[in-house]
Design a protein around this nucleic acid. Structure first.
Length: 721
DNA sequence: ATCCCAGAACTTTTT
DNA sequence: GTTCTGGGAT
């Protein structure tokens, strides 16, 4: 590609960033302002104009998806291979360095990665051994604590524990770390911290990477945490060509350690120039104006205002639903209309604050026979049956892996009970041995009863046997061999019902994934299996066996970041839901919620609907939320209210409507409950739920605007208790 | 080893 | 209200 072509089609600011001299730079890139484009073109520019070698490029993203996209677009732009460049996620790149220098990092060659589930099991095990009450100290919280400390670059010894609680946490952290080290295991946070420490402690190594990576590019910089910042700074050294791209207004991961202030810190530490990308190529002027106005309510912004030379577009529609069912019905209705106008389902998205909200929406879509796809949820490589299989493979490749040992020693059941297991654990603890070797020792010392000893021996031989047999097999054959010979397949085949069938299918899909897997040529893995295992932990399997059909896209606001859709619905925009209850109680959280709202709004290209429900069944209770404060922050001339809100009046004593009130409401309208379809005119304070003695019914109510009154179609679904 | 029930949880998510 | 989990009973 010709050099001038690299700048063609870019606006002035984008061009300025792409063609900037070698210097540290912050590109403050608003939503939909073409930041990926700038990064990609910058890489091409560095190569073609600055004669940078591909080996000098180090491009970091947060997600595998973003890394993959960047690599693909670079290759497209430079019309060649991006091999030699390091383009990947923070964890992927740090992991790569650790593999290459596992000795310096004091890790076994076949070290394995713990996902958060493994991590929690590991902690639970420790808590039992340390006699700590799990009720008082849930493994989840402790895992959270440990990760948070690692994210800040803190080892147990760096923590000043002033009170007994923190001292306990510190003790568990310490024990956990020892257990991981002994087993050759690293958790996600450990990958970064360990890599950081190795580079810091090995000046020769560090110099090597610093000299090699003359050009560092970082995407989504507002999401970096402390250790990520330090890691980048270390590798950058005094290089003066680091380009970071980010948007302080889209920082929504503060709750998991992201430091929005890293952007400002970068400006100081690296004496960087700032370039702003404010022209938006995605949304209508109306949507942008509303989003801008909203975000201006935040303080300490770096300042940025999106604009477009495109259409004004339609106003943002705000719908005040009677309850969550009405909300779902409304949304589905609008999607239906949109579909009938000749649009694709997959161009519409429903965004919500928390996953629990998806259910009612799903039911409504199902009722209309509309296809949908929900993002998030259980990932492929995290499924129980998949993890079982992977843990066998982990154990095959690294006998020290205690987490894997614990998981599969009695899966499928082979007569190794709690007693035998705690025997092995005791021995392991006493001798500071991995469980595998403790089990071996116990058998040799004949400390077990005949039956238990046979069972354990058979297990050890099983794993050894797999390793002996898979030597010259392909990866897929190895997996197949392991899944079948361990009895896993038989176990899940025997499991009845839809669930068992799905699990068998997943195991087959795992073999398929092995077939598809390509070992990265330039990374240092001792075996294809090793590479595959790392892949399964770092890439959770999004896209595995996924169908691409035309469907409504459903996801949380968080997972919508980076995406765009012509038609967007934001559901449940109510006080207590969004901003969430807890964000209103803790200080500083509110602004992040507002940024989340900003992110949500700026996903919409053409039309945005925002809905809120006056009544909502939440955790089994009827809640009456007022519309979100964020709605009040939108400028009047950008919005239209589809249904003027009515005041829902609950009876004084109870937060639920009473049966008599419900019956009265229906009787007043001249209809009886139980009648399949009812037509009624309802006024303010419409009663939506009916609960009678002996039978429980949920009244589903459909509303359409008819002048100042509402024509109501309702039917009751009576369910005997 | 398996099953069943009581009790707890319950933002947001990538790696 | 629902779903998951852990512990106790069979």
């Amino acid at each position: 590609m010709d050099v001038s072509e690299l700048l063609d089609g870019l606006n002035d600011n984008q061009r300025e960033a792409v063609a900037a001299p070698l210097q540290n730079m912050l590109v403050l890139a608003g939503a939909g302002s073409g930041k990926t484009r700038v990064l990609v073109h910058r890489i091409a520019w560095l190569m073609q104009v600055e004669n940078a070698s591909p080996y000098s490029v180090f491009a970091v993203t947060f997600t595998n998806k973003a890394a993959k996209e960047m690599r693909a677009r670079v290759e497209q732009t430079i019309e060649g291979s991006a091999g030699g460049m390091w383009i990947g996620t923070f964890h992927g790149l740090a992991h790569r360095i650790l593999r290459a220098h596992h000795r310096e990092a004091k890790l076994p060659e076949s070290f394995q990665i713990l996902d958060s589930d493994d991590q929690q099991r590991m902690i639970r095990r420790l808590l039992k051994a340390m006699n700590i009450d799990e009720k008082k100290w849930p493994a989840k919280h402790i895992a959270w604590y440990i990760s948070a400390k690692k994210d800040e670059g803190l080892r147990p010894g760096d923590i000043q524990a002033y009170d007994v609680n923190e001292q306990l946490l510190q003790r568990v952290y310490s024990a956990y770390q020892e257990a991981c080290d002994r087993a050759g295991l690293v958790d996600f946070a450990e990958i970064l911290l360990r890599c950081y420490e190795v580079l810091q402690q090995q000046p020769t190594l560090l110099r090597h990477y610093q000299q090699r990576f003359a050009h560092i590019l970082v995407d989504e910089f507002q999401d970096t945490n402390t250790i990520q910042y330090r890691w980048l700074a270390l590798i950058a050294g005094d290089t003066n060509s680091m380009m970071i791209v980010g948007d302080d207004d889209q920082s929504i991961y503060g709750w998991r350690g992201a430091r929005i202030e890293n952007i400002k810190r970068f400006l100081d530490d690296f004496d960087a120039e700032t370039i702003r990308l404010e022209q938006n190529y995605r949304s209508t002027a109306t949507i942008l104006k509303a989003a801008n106005t909203l975000i201006e309510n935040n303080s300490e912004r770096m300042g940025k205002s999106l604009w477009t030379d495109g259409n004004q577009g339609e106003p943002i529609s705000i719908y005040a639903a009677f309850n969550e069912l009405d909300e779902a019905r409304f949304i589905v209705g609008k999607i239906k209309t949109w579909l009938q106008a000749g649009n694709a389902l997959s161009d519409s998205a429903i965004l919500y604050r928390n996953n629990a909200q998806s259910r009612v929406l799903e039911e409504a879509l199902l009722q209309e026979g509309m296809k949908y796809r929900i993002y998030g949820g259980m990932r492929f490589f995290e499924r129980q049956e998949i993890k079982d299989a992977l843990c066998y493979l982990r154990l095959v490749s690294n006998r020290q892996d205690d987490a894997a040992f614990e998981r599969v020693i009695n899966t499928p059941t082979r007569g190794i009970g709690d007693k035998t297991l705690s025997h092995i654990r005791d021995c392991a603890r006493a001798e500071s041995l991995p469980l595998w070797y403790a089990a071996k020792a116990i058998i040799e010392q004949q400390h077990l009863s005949g039956r238990a000893a046979t069972a354990v021996t058979r297990f050890l031989e099983l794993v050894d046997g797999i390793e002996a047999r898979i030597g010259d097999l392909t990866l897929a054959e190895q997996a197949k061999y392991a899944i079948e010979n361990t009895g896993l397949m038989a176990m899940y085949q025997a499991e009845k019902g839809e669930k068992g069938r799905a699990r068998v299918e997943n195991l087959e899909e795992l073999i398929n994934a092995c077939e598809q897997y390509e070992l990265p040529v330039d990374e240092e893995f001792s075996s294809p299996l090793q590479g595959f295992l790392a892949y399964t932990s770092l890439e959770s399997g999004e896209g595995q066996a996924e169908e691409h059909e035309d469907a409504v896209q459903m996801m949380t606001l968080h997972s919508a970041k980076g995406l765009e859709f012509p038609l967007v619905f934001m559901a449940g925009v109510e006080e207590g839901m969004f901003p969430s209850q807890q964000s209103q109680e803790e200080s500083g959280r509110l602004e992040e919620e507002r940024r989340l709202c900003y992110v949500g709004m700026t996903r919409a290209m053409d039309k945005l609907y925002i809905t809120h429900a006056e009544a909502r069944r939440l955790y089994g209770q009827e809640k009456y939320h007022s519309p979100s404060r964020f709605l009040r922050e939108l400028p009047d001339d950008c919005i239209e209210e589809i249904r003027v809100r009515t005041k829902v009046t609950a009876p004084q004593q109870s937060s639920r409507f009473s049966p008599s009130l419900t019956q009265a409401a229906f009787a007043d309208s001249g209809f009886n409950l139980g009648q399949r379809v009812l037509h009624a005119k309802f006024g303010e304070g419409t009663v939506l739920n009916y609960e009678g003695a002996g039978a429980q019914s949920r009244v589903q109510v459909n509303f359409d605007d008819v002048g100042s009154k509402w024509l109501v179609t309702a039917y009751a679904r009576l369910q005997a208790l």
